[in-house]
Nucleic acid binder design. Sequence first.
DNA 1: GCATTGACGAAGG
DNA 2: CCCTTCGCCAATG
Length: 115
Amino acid sequence: MKKDSSAEKSFFEDVYEVVRLIPKGRVSTYGAIARYLGTRLSARMVGWAMNAAHTAHPKVPAHRVVNRNGMLSGRHHFATPTLMEELLLKEKILVKNDKIVDFAMKLWDPSKELI
DNA sequence: GCATTGACGAAGG
DNA sequence: CCCTTCGCCAATG
């Protein structure tokens, strides 16, 4: 059995949940997620959580999460460096020069879109 | 137990 | 305009 009650939910799981809530065709940023979780001062932790995201289940659409520039900074962490871009492309998200086109329009901020 | 690193962000030079 | 530094927190060495 697991530990007793209490919200043992790790910070990582919290991140995964939010990332999974990202609507298709939209993207989010580490900072936006971090801010929504309250760790706004540590967007790094969101990125760190993503590092373990590939071990999380169900899988986390980490490809929908980019840095504040809209750049695919984490593409090297995927199975293949082009996987992230292809996944985004399938969601009608255009990527140009490793950056998301019309990033401002694709951006989905949980603290704004989500209540 | 301290130093380094990390898929970030904002500010300063 | 490009590069550097600081901050923040957690994991790893």
